[in-house]
Nucleic acid binder design. Structure first.
Lengths: 134, 134
DNA sequence: CCGCATCCCCGATGATACTG
DNA sequence: CAGTATCATCGGGGATGCGG
């Protein structure tokens, strides 16, 4: 399996480095992908860390049904949330953060907090850099 | 410019959400890309947060010259590091974290720390999930 | 309502070869 | 040593339609 190979490669790299600020690249890449953080954020503020598919779909601007499904499936696979299927008509599906999922929120918050604080400066740096190259 | 449009879209989304765990998706995506965190990590532990191109190239397993150049250029553009060019023969180029770049390390550490702690559990969850689907 | 399957495009990344 | 240019590749992700 290609994916598993790449993941374990990343782990090896991390272990070889042996210092703190590093972490499995694959996880960071996954969590930093286009939609994951947004989904986690919406579940973070939802009552009981729980929301249904259509709610998430409508709350997250621009996400397609396909990408929401894929993102949720990945998070479920990682054990960060669980899927609750209700056999009703029409069907209802709810997603809820697991203990591990909730446990990630403080760390995520610390990182996103830094980003929020430094975002304006980064934007300014980018503009300056781009302008210097016309 | 397509990229700028997408970035500002992300900002709008963030502002509309108005809660804490969220941050500009673009930044997280950039920092979570294949090489950025590894480069930041290596600079984090380098003397004076400073290292030359070839050192980084040799330290980071698997990175190509091209991708290291691109990653460094992006980080420079974001204002997270500065480029020091020495006109010698052969030429020497050093990269050093800026104040903002160094300021990111604690937040990064908090996040990567969580990942390191929960990585084994996530791996187990993935295996269980994959096995359940054969 | 939920989500899977299919098609398709484009950007990200790698490989390689070439300059200052 | 550091960086650029070019070409090939691969996977993310959007659009759409079908199925349970």
């Amino acid at each position: 399996m290609k994916k598993a190979t790449m993941a374990s490669d990343a782990v090896e790299i991390e272990e070889r480095l042996g210092f703190k600020p590093c972490a499995p690249t694959g996880v960071l890449a996954r969590l930093g992908d286009k939609w994951t953080v947004l989904v986690m954020s919406h579940l973070a503020v939802a009552p009981d860390h729980r929301a249904r598919f259509s709610t998430l779909k409508n709350s997250i601007e621009g996400i397609t049904q396909r990408m929401l499904t894929l993102t949720l499936r990945n998070l479920e696979r990682d054990g960060l949330l669980t899927r609750h299927y209700f056999t009703e008509v029409p069907p209802r599906v709810e997603y809820q953060l697991t203990e591990m999922g909730s446990g990630m929120l403080p760390a995520l918050e610390s990182f996103t907090s830094w980003i929020r604080e430094n975002w304006p400066l980064m934007e300014a740096c980018r503009r300056a850099f781009d302008e210097a190259r016309q």
